[in-house]
């Protein structure tokens, strides 16, 4: 049974880097947000301009780098592997020296808590026909699927995706959106996606956080009413348009958000 009603909760998280002159450069300031537990799996987006510190935020959540201030809580979820929060970086990082199968097995070897069978997992991400292929020279979408399956092999409570879709063509992106939605729903997986793409965030997510830059700060929280809903996928729908306007208005009130990609 769930003890907490959140998957992830950040309380006043902050991070600074030391600039060359020895001055502290605030990258993240007072980040507060909570991702509620969802029985159907959740997709949350953090939309922010370039250089706002969203990658830093994901690295902190993942435990790759240390925060300087605040607290992070991981709530109870169906997964018991709460300490490992895999992060899929901007360039999907399937290891080129391992085949698809070996890459995913790499993830399996890091955990005792196996939820999937290797072959099933390969099939789940749509790579059953390519299990002996190597990711070198393969498309971004292909490499993303490997990284995703490798992350899933650890049976984590949360998977972080750092703007990995922006290097994919539109068709691949649509396929990957669908895959993420399907996995989130069927496997009850929770995703946090950091993105600069407004449309992507609206289409995919049930919950969106807007983040300002310099320093990175959560400035707005929007519930879309459901992840990957048909209404949100229809760019001409009224709901999509009103949500887009709401986000644009929220962004216009903060000047640092000019690099948001408002197109598809």
């Amino acid at each position: 049974m769930n003890k907490n009603n959140f998957i992830l909760k950040l309380n006043s998280v902050g991070k600074y880097f030391l600039a060359e002159a020895g001055m502290k450069l605030n990258v993240l300031e007072d980040i507060n947000f909570e991702i509620p537990v969802s029985s159907e799996g959740s997709i949350t987006s953090i939309i922010a301009p370039f250089g706002s510190g969203k990658s830093t935020l994901l690295k902190i959540i993942s435990g790759v780098i240390e925060k300087d201030r605040g607290e992070i809580f991981f709530g109870d979820s169906q997964s018991s592997n709460k300490n490992i929060i895999p992060l899929i970086p901007e360039k999907p990082s399937s290891f080129p020296w391992l085949s698809v199968r070996q890459n995913i097995k790499f993830g399996f070897n890091l955990t005792e808590n196996k939820k999937y069978n290797l072959d099933n997992l390969i099939a789940l991400v749509g790579l059953a026909a390519y299990s002996d292929h190597y990711p070198d020279n393969k498309s971004c979408g292909f490499r993303f699927r490997i990284s995703l399956a490798r992350a899933m092999a650890l049976n984590p409570s949360l998977i972080l995706i750092d703007d990995s879709f922006k290097q994919m063509d539109l068709e691949s992106r649509e396929e990957i959106y669908k895959l993420i939605y399907d996995l989130s729903s069927s496997e009850k997986l929770n995703f946090i996606i950091a993105t600069t793409n407004l449309v992507e965030a609206i289409q995919l997510s049930g919950l969106i956080f807007l983040m300002s830059a310099k320093p990175g700060k959560i400035v707005h929280r929007i519930e879309t009413g459901g992840k990957y809903s048909p209404e949100m996928r229809n760019l001409k729908s009224e709901k999509f348009s009103s949500l887009k306007s709401e986000i644009e208005e929220a962004f216009q009130s903060v000047h640092s958000l000019k690099t948001i990609n408002y197109s598809v």
Binding site: K59, S62, G63, V64, N83, I84, I85, P86, L87, I88, P89, E90, K91, P92, S93, F95, F106, G107, L110, S147, R150, A151, L154, L160
Partner: peptide, 14 residues
């Protein structure tokens, strides 16, 4: 060395 691989591996708990 490619930062993506290192980042990804660290996030997997290595």
């Amino acid at each position: 060395a490619d930062e993506e691989y290192i980042l990804s591996a660290r996030s997997l708990g290595l």
